[in-house]
Computed example of a mutant assay.
Amino acid sequence: MTDIVVLGSTNMDLVAYVEKAPQRGETVTGREFRTVPGGKGANQAIAAARAGATVSMIGAVGNDAFGSRLRATLEHSGVNTDHLRTTEGPSGTAHIVVDAEGGNSIVVVPGANATVDRVLPRDEGCIASADSLLLQLETPLSAVLAGARTARAHGVRTILTPAPAQPLPPELLAATDLLVPNEHEAAALTGLTDPREAAAALLERVPEVVVTLGAAGSLYAARGAEPLTVPAPRVTAVDSTGAGDTFVGALAVALGEARPVREALSWAATAAALSVQRAGASASMPYRPEIEAGYAS
């Protein structure tokens, strides 16, 4: 069984479902509201655990009701929370509007996630013993960089999701093994709108890149190899929130199990396709038997 550590955010997602997202200054009536545990870090941890990995979460929640629920949700999915700190003040929140086509817009308020600004000494051993470390950008860059450096020092594969998109310091990219942006994040990082061109440019900074393309699948690029495009299953999306995190969590599991790249990407795409057919982020993430059944069909 592959061993994965996630250093990242935990948020409570406050989700409003509408026919059409409001424009600036506009008020619309929603059809439903839900509170769903999320955050890119917690989402990836839950996705990886449900896909069959042993997972530990490094991060922070507040000492509020949201924090208690976030911790319980991670533990219910089999994620080890020994390295999930509880801080004074509110937990992180994400305010999400989901339209009738399953598209979303999101405002993240960091809360306790802002305190995750470094790797604590007790976290280093957790990272050192893992097969892979998953990182995102909803916690301060100082912690993301420290985590990547710790992983590199111990020969642990580092998988970075550069979201929310922002300029990345060269030293972080130098400590990253696999970069997994979506096509918009790839464009923001390179200034190139064509995913193949963006991936080629990113290979000057990291050895491997997977650009996720939504319903079109994913593009894999590695130094010295021809780019590989892998389609995604065709499904009707209900809510795409968390689909990218589901993909990354499942991909980390598949790569940790030494599956060939094409198979790993297809397996991860199957997990993401299952997730978009359900409402919510962490609540929508499939378990391993569902992924295996979907992949085999």
Results as ranks from 00 to 15, higher is better:
residue 162 P to Q: 12
residue 157 R to Q: 01
residue 121 P to D: 13
residue 111 G to C: 13
residue 146 A to H: 05
residue 141 L to C: 12
residue 108 V to D: 08
residue 112 A to M: 14
residue 132 S to Y: 03
residue 138 E to N: 09
residue 150 T to M: 07
residue 141 L to K: 05
residue 170 P to I: 01
residue 162 P to H: 13
residue 121 P to C: 11
residue 137 L to A: 14
residue 122 R to F: 06
residue 110 P to G: 11
residue 167 P to Y: 10
residue 107 V to M: 14
residue 132 S to N: 03
residue 104 N to W: 03
residue 133 L to H: 06
residue 114 A to G: 11
residue 137 L to F: 10
residue 110 P to C: 11
residue 155 G to M: 07
residue 124 E to A: 12
residue 129 S to W: 00
residue 129 S to F: 00
residue 161 T to D: 15
residue 119 V to A: 07
residue 123 D to Q: 07
residue 121 P to N: 08
residue 117 D to S: 15
residue 145 L to M: 08
residue 139 T to F: 11
residue 171 E to M: 00
residue 155 G to Q: 11
residue 168 L to E: 00
residue 122 R to V: 03
residue 157 R to V: 02
residue 161 T to P: 05
residue 159 I to E: 06
residue 104 N to C: 07
residue 143 A to Y: 10
residue 104 N to I: 07
residue 117 D to R: 14
residue 146 A to C: 08
residue 157 R to S: 02
residue 114 A to H: 13
residue 138 E to F: 10
residue 138 E to G: 10
residue 159 I to H: 06
residue 171 E to R: 01
residue 123 D to E: 15
residue 107 V to Y: 08
residue 111 G to Y: 14
residue 162 P to D: 11
residue 169 P to S: 05
residue 164 P to L: 14
residue 127 I to H: 05
residue 167 P to H: 11
residue 119 V to E: 10
residue 146 A to S: 09
residue 148 A to K: 07
residue 144 V to P: 08
residue 140 P to H: 12
residue 158 T to S: 08
residue 171 E to C: 03
residue 139 T to Y: 05
residue 147 G to H: 03
residue 143 A to M: 09
residue 131 D to H: 05
residue 156 V to F: 09
residue 107 V to F: 08
residue 123 D to L: 07
residue 116 V to Q: 12
residue 126 C to I: 14
residue 105 S to M: 09
residue 145 L to N: 04
residue 130 A to S: 12
residue 110 P to M: 13
residue 109 V to I: 14
residue 116 V to N: 11
residue 167 P to T: 00
residue 132 S to W: 02
residue 152 R to K: 12
residue 161 T to W: 01
residue 111 G to N: 14
residue 145 L to D: 01
residue 153 A to T: 00
residue 134 L to S: 03
residue 147 G to E: 03
residue 128 A to D: 12
residue 132 S to H: 05
residue 159 I to W: 03
residue 146 A to W: 07
residue 168 L to A: 02
residue 110 P to S: 14
residue 128 A to C: 11
residue 151 A to Q: 02
residue 141 L to P: 07
residue 151 A to V: 01
